[in-house]
Amino acid sequence: MTDKKKIELDILGQVCPACLLVVLREMNTHRLRLKNGEAQLVIKTDHRDTTRTIPESARKMGYDVEVRSLETCYEITIGSK
């Protein structure tokens, strides 16, 4: 996932389910690029529930998801293998 174009999405301060809708909208918008592996969506969030709801939804759509805990927030990366 490292050499792909990164589409960054900052939803710091937002909570579920609003942030899930925002992320789903981005995933719909960039669907083709995410599916064929050209790009990956990198989300920054500080809402803990989001680290569960977003990966669950993304995986149901067939994406690979990686969640990393950073110092002040979480980073969720969504893309294809």
Binding site: C16, P17, A18, L20, L21, L24, D49, E56, S57
Partner: peptide
């Protein structure tokens, strides 16, 4: 639909 997607309601 949000519940279908596995998250809480608005």
């Amino acid at each position: 639909l949000l519940q279908v997607m596995g998250t809480e309601p608005l």
